[in-house]
Design a protein around this nucleic acid. Structure first.
Lengths: 228, 228
DNA sequence: GCATTTGCCTAGTGATCGCTACAGAAAAAA
DNA sequence: TTTTTTCTGTAGCGATCACTAGGCAAATGC
């Protein structure tokens, strides 16, 4: 009765085969997935506290009781929003870390993609995880996203340590500092995307930031028109 | 009758000589400056929206009517808080830019001091201007601090351009990108200070970030225990 | 058809928001 | 002292907050 409401109704897995059983009562008059996407955009743009339930019902196109029946309370809706956001919009970092052959290539790709993602047209700028729960009345929400941010930095560090172990980075490389630096660049890029920076400006920033890597070439701060 | 209430009462400048004229009515029962400092700390820690007027009256130790009589409404109190914060806590950047002989030395000092300021004990961590007005219901407050952040980046850029003109930086240096990069580092440091980073961690991050400068030495990402 | 189940809509809950009217209290001016 | 001026405390304003009770609507099961 409780958890049932928050899952997509109409499908049940039975004996390994997905069987569609007709729901008994009145069917939902809205599409849960598109309503969730609207909620993602609203929370993304205005943050957890500044997005009221009446804001949500307006942009989702449903009444408050429908929202509570389908998603639980505001907090659990936000939790789902953060989870889906992570897989739908915030996974480029993990993907780069997992797919690129070196830590350096992974971070370079991540920063380049961040410049594009954080300024993508038709979406709120910047990163939801970085901005949606700052200055919250309820500390739990704030703490939840804080842990995600710190987990990201920890993931950077472990990837860099793997790079050191693999010999792709010098043995003396300070993985923790490099990871924190990468996190600061990502967070700073997200902030500046919110503050109106363009994709090109963020790309230049990111390219410059790559100069801190041990095997970088000299004179990175030269303009691209001169240095190529 | 309107602006009078918001200034410190009891002193009036007359014919160039500061004359203390006794106030006519009942004197204020609290010290306006210490109450303002409490408000600074409250807004600094929780941000504009998450700090309610009742929060303010509690930490300031005064009633709501006294607050409104002495500081105007919540918005104008926040404006004063931001202004005083800027001179009291947020001026280390300007000072470094103005006092250091080179742009590079100025940024290096600014980042080093930021690591200390953003983690100073007994105060909220991070920067009020960066964090206190994200996700606001009223866009004006958000825009006000956004303009301050962008003005800071513009100040970085003009200092770097001056450095190029003075010959202390290579002529091809991309001042705009370097300024945005510096802004990203500062904003990232502030975010990480809020997320629990220590002063030492931020100092390592800042030292690493200085490697993007044209005249930096090689292999900056090495640990200090090995390289220094 | 009828009963059951489930979702939607109206209308509201108590709590808190920013803010203020009003009366009493404390000072100087008369 | 009395009057005038200003501040303080109580008490409450309308608006909005997150949230929900209750009745109706729309589907299936019989």
């Amino acid at each position: 009765m409780v958890s049932r409401q928050q899952t997509e109704s109409g499908t049940t897995a039975r004996t390994g085969v997905e069987a569609v059983t007709k729901q008994r009562g009145r069917p939902r008059s809205f599409d849960r997935e598109t309503a969730l996407e609207k909620a993602i955009l609203a929370f993304w743009e205005h943050g957890y506290e500044a997005t009221s339930v009446s804001d949500l019902t307006r942009v989702m196109g449903i009444g408050a009781p429908s929202l509570y029946a389908a998603f639980g309370d505001k907090r659990s809706l936000f939790d789902e929003v953060v989870r889906v956001y992570g897989t739908r919009y915030g996974s480029f970092g993990e993907r780069a870390l997992a797919e690129e052959p070196t830590a350096r290539a992974a971070v370079e790709r991540m920063l380049r993609e961040a410049a594009a993602e954080y300024t993508a047209p038709g979406r709120p700028h910047g990163c939801l995880v970085i901005h949606a729960a700052t200055n919250c009345t309820s500390p739990e929400v704030e703490e939840d996203l804080r842990e995600r941010r710190n987990a990201n930095i920890a993931a950077f560090e472990s990837r860099m340590k793997a790079g050191i172990a693999a010999g792709e980075l010098p043995a003396g490389t300070d993985a923790a500092a490099l990871a924190r630096h990468t996190g600061a660049i990502v967070q700073g890029m997200s902030q500046q995307a919110r503050d109106g920076a363009t994709r090109e400006q963020l790309e230049a920033l990111a390219a410059l930031a790559m100069a801190v890597w041990p095997d970088s070439s000299a004179n990175p701060a030269r303009s691209r028109t001169e240095a190529g």
